[in-house]
Simulated scan of single mutants.
Amino acid sequence: MRATAAVLLVLCLLTVSHAWDCQEVVNIKNLMQIDAGLGQVVATDTSQIPYYLVGDKWIRLPGSLKHITVGPAGIWGVNKDYAIYKYVAGNWVKAEGLLKQLDAGGEQFIVGANMNDTPFCLTRSATVGYKGPGSPLPWTGLPGAVKYYSCGPFGCWAVNKNDDIYLMSLNQDCQNNGWSHIDGKLSMIEVATDGSVFGVNSAGQVYTRDGITASKPEGTGWSHVSTCMHMKHVRAKLQNYVII
């Protein structure tokens, strides 16, 4: 999907054949990136304007961001200079550190990757307690190199510059046992609030991971999802609501 294309909402449950019916969301064009969590949807456009979806209306948020995320950890974003911000009481509050991408989908902790593809984690206590300058922000560096990183209730998924896929068990204190390689190739990957995993490959094809449970967070395999066009970015929202 080109950056100038309208965002599409997939408003149905996946069928046995993993086919979707796509419906265009009105009054929004030129989206670059979109994220969803806990029933909320946020996005940024090609002018780096952030938005929040209320019903079927996009509400402009203040500031300028190239990446935005929403989830149990709140609403966070990064700008073109990689500066990090948290949305607090209607305003963006600058946070310490530099990241190119971040995700708020974990159990109230934040993960992200910097310009060198180094992954980081911010603990739940630091994330929830952050109100502005002066609040501690002990970013924890993690092993490996990732270009895109997303977390859910059963683990954190990431892809590297070679489109290799990895899974990490990460708790609210950023403790982990390292990365486990997962079969397949994806250029970006996202995890829903219910643990569902979706990804897009370099050809714009969408896949979902089957068999994910708390006892088997790696799942059992990939299924191709038939879509109405080639995609660049996919984001899962709850169990039956996928945003592309």
Rank of each mutant, 00 (worst) to 15 (best):
M1Y: 02
L9Y: 07
T15E: 10
V16I: 03
W20M: 06
E24P: 08
L31Y: 02
Q40T: 03
S47R: 13
L53D: 09
D56S: 15
W58P: 06
L61H: 09
P62I: 12
P62L: 11
G63C: 09
H67D: 15
I68A: 10
G71F: 12
P72C: 01
G74A: 06
W76E: 11
V78D: 04
N79A: 06
K80E: 14
Y87G: 01
K94T: 14
L98Y: 03
D103K: 01
G105E: 07
G106C: 07
G106T: 04
G106I: 04
F109P: 03
I110E: 00
V111I: 14
G112V: 08
N114K: 07
M115W: 11
S125R: 02
T140R: 06
T140L: 02
L142A: 05
V146Q: 13
K147T: 14
Y148L: 01
Y149K: 02
C151Y: 03
W157V: 05
M168V: 02
D173S: 10
D173W: 00
Q175G: 08
W179T: 01
H181F: 00
I182Q: 14
V191Y: 10
S196R: 11
S202C: 01
T208I: 06
D210Y: 00
K216T: 13
E218C: 01
V225G: 12
C228G: 08
C228D: 11
H230I: 01
L238I: 02
Y241D: 13
V242C: 13
I244R: 01
